[in-house]
Structure formats: structure tokens, C-alpha cells
């Protein structure tokens, strides 16, 4: 396994490269990634919230905002790790260029993971600010949302990288989005408590990472007590780490032939 541990200094240069590109395009990028979650909060938070009232022992807007923070982090990291990483790896040949420098596959992928998580944090911070302005944030502990979002970003980026490693084109990512991202978004407690699902479905949802991300963020935003934090963190870390190592192995086999 020693060959898959990154050299952090090289990974940071890859991160820096991506952040430089992002700064170029930051206007449209922020607008797109932030617009949708904002729309959900506004439309569902107020619209649906009117009917739900206080039946969830917190305002629905608070309930929803914490779910949206988690799912937006998932979306941003997943899409960056699939579409953008694939673009750099295949059509743009960026990795070919980097691999002629004293940088190895594992450094590139570690840099990509850090970057995907950073992008989640940038957008998550913006959503958190708007959520507080809308009055959805009830606890100073909400500042810990930021590091948790970073971890959520690592988790979903690591998982998505495995898809990217195997992808032969962009169409391949549709399967992953349809079979995992969208079901998680709908089922993992973003819009309603997971406990309202049938038991068997709850079990499935608990195996996937998004429910754990939501369970970490919601208490921090609403001020309710946080439980099972160790388990939730462990699930996110496991997905991130296992994803990274599998992706590093697959991409090494793919590029170093």
C-alpha cells in the first residue's frame, strides 16, 4: 500500500492548479451550484413548511436547510470528481502533463479529493450564510458545519473517483447519478425524517453515506443534541478512504500501461 500514499506537497500543487482555474470561472460556478439549493430552501422551505408547521420539533426551514447543506456538498463533490476529473484525465490530457513532473498518480488523486472537498466547502459556506439570513440556523455550533462539509466532500469525491477511473465517456456517469446520487438525495432524510420510511428501506439508506452526513449536520444547524457522531464520522471517512485507494489502484492501471 505504500505506493498509494500521496506526497502532500505535490497534492497541494494539484489542488492549487484546480483552484486557479476555478477562480477564473468562479462567477458562473457559484451561481449554478448555489442557485439550486437556494431554490429548494425558498420554495420547499416556505411552501412545504407552511403545511408541515412545527411537527418535526424544529422549523421545517431549519430541517430542510441542514439536509440541503449535506446534499449540496454531495452533489458538488460528486460532479467535480466525475465530470471535471474525467475531463482533466482523458480529453484534456492534464494528467499526462503532470505525470512528466515529479508527481505520481496518488498525489494527483489526493489533490483532486482535497479540491472537490474545498469546492463543497465554498458552496456550503454560501448556503449556510443564506440559511442564517433566512433565520434557519439556531446554534453557534453551526460553524462546525464547515469542517463536516469538507469531510462530506471527501467522502463523495472518493466514491465518485472510482466511477471516473472506470469511465469510458461522460454517459457512464448517468448510471451513478440515477442509481445512487438521486436515490440518496430523495431517501436520505434531506426532505423528511428517514424514520418515516419502511424498515427495509431505512436499512438500505443507513448503508449509504448521505444519511450519516445529514445526521451530523442537522443537530449542528438546529441546536438539537448530536448522537452517534463517531459512527457517522466513521462512515464518511471509510467511504472517502476506500474510494481513494480503489480509485488510485484503478487509475494507475489505466494510465501507467
Amino acid at each position: 500500500m505504500h505506493a498509494t500514499l500521496p506526497r502532500w506537497r505535490s497534492a497541494l500543487q494539484v489542488w492549487r492548479r484546480n483552484s486557479l482555474v476555478w477562480r477564473r470561472l468562479m462567477g458562473p460556478s457559484l451561481f449554478i451550484n448555489f442557485g439550486e439549493p437556494f431554490l429548494y430552501m425558498l420554495g420547499l422551505g416556505y411552501g412545504l413548511g407552511f403545511f408541515i408547521g412545527n411537527s418535526m420539533d424544529m422549523p421545517y426551514l431549519t430541517f430542510l436547510a441542514s439536509g440541503i447543506l449535506a446534499s449540496a456538498a454531495m452533489n458538488i463533490a460528486s460532479f467535480e470528481a466525475m465530470y471535471s476529473v474525467y475531463t482533466r484525465m482523458v480529453p484534456q490530457r492534464t494528467y499526462d502533463a503532470i505525470l512528466a513532473a515529479p508527481i505520481e498518480i496518488q498525489d494527483i488523486l489526493a489533490g483532486e479529493l482535497l479540491w472537490c472537498a474545498t469546492k463543497s466547502v465554498i458552496n456550503g459556506t454560501a448556503i449556510l450564510i443564506v440559511a442564517s439570513l433566512l433565520g434557519a440556523v439556531h446554534d453557534w455550533r453551526a460553524v462546525f458545519v464547515i469542517p463536516v462539509i469538507f469531510l462530506i466532500g471527501l467522502c463523495f469525491a472518493g466514491t465518485a473517483l472510482v466511477m471516473t477511473a472506470k469511465a469510458q465517456g461522460y454517459d457512464f456517469f448517468n448510471y451513478y447519478v440515477t442509481l445512487l446520487i438521486t436515490p440518496m438525495f430523495v431517501l436520505s432524510g434531506v426532505f423528511y425524517p428517514v424514520s418515516s420510511l419502511p424498515h427495509w428501506l431505512q436499512t438500505v439508506v443507513q448503508i449509504l453515506p448521505l444519511a450519516h452526513a445529514v445526521d451530523l449536520l442537522r443537530p449542528l444547524v438546529s441546536g438539537r443534541p448530536l448522537s452517534n457522531a463517531g459512527l457517522h464520522l466513521a462512515v464518511l471517512v471509510t467511504y472517502a478512504t476506500v474510494g481513494y485507494f480503489i480509485a488510485a489502484h484503478l487509475i494507475r492501471k489505466r494510465l501507467l500501461v
Binding site: V21, Q92, R93, T94, A97, A100
Partner: peptide, 9 residues
């Protein structure tokens, strides 16, 4: 390299 891989961004 044989094929250009300059960074277009």
C-alpha cells in the same frame, strides 16, 4: 510529449 497537453484554462 508527442501530443500537446498544455493547460487550455
Amino acid at each position: 510529449p508527442q501530443m500537446d497537453n498544455l493547460d487550455p484554462d
